[in-house]
Amino acid sequence: MKTKLSHNTILKFYNKQLSHEEMKHVGNCIDNSRELKNILNELEATYHLTNEKERLENNPYLFMEISNKLNKNKNQDTSYSTYLQRVFRPIMALSLVLLTLYTGYSIGNLASENSQQFTTQTYNSEFYFNDLQLEKMETVLLIKE
């Protein structure tokens, strides 16, 4: 006979939280089903392991390891070089960033100034050059008239 019981019913039966009648009925169901019997046995065996109190052995070197760590922390906290590093590192990084930005800005400005000068000059020279080249005698006379 294949019987299906919910998790809650099995757990209530396992913890004996059902009424007398229900306990009897569920008990019969479990007796008739090999699968349910196996499940209940496995649950009992696994949960029973909570009674086994595993204990670790003490580590004889624990105090040594702790005092080493404490000394290391103390040295790190008091050492002058670390203090300097902590103070000067952000300052150095910030000044480097500012210097880079300023250099970039200056180079950019220099380039734009140069290009402006260059374009004006060429434009001017082209203008005069073209004028001289294109302006024929007839046109000059026409304008003057």
């Binding site: 998790h7 099995i10 757990l11 396992y14 913890n15 699968e35 196996n38 499940i39 496995e42 649950l43 696994t46 949960y47 909570t50």
Partner: peptide, 13 residues
């Protein structure tokens, strides 16, 4: 804990 164990058992079955 019992519920989690039961789920595991049913899953493995």
């Amino acid at each position: 804990i019992q519920k989690n164990i039961l789920k595991k058992i049913k899953k493995s079955k």
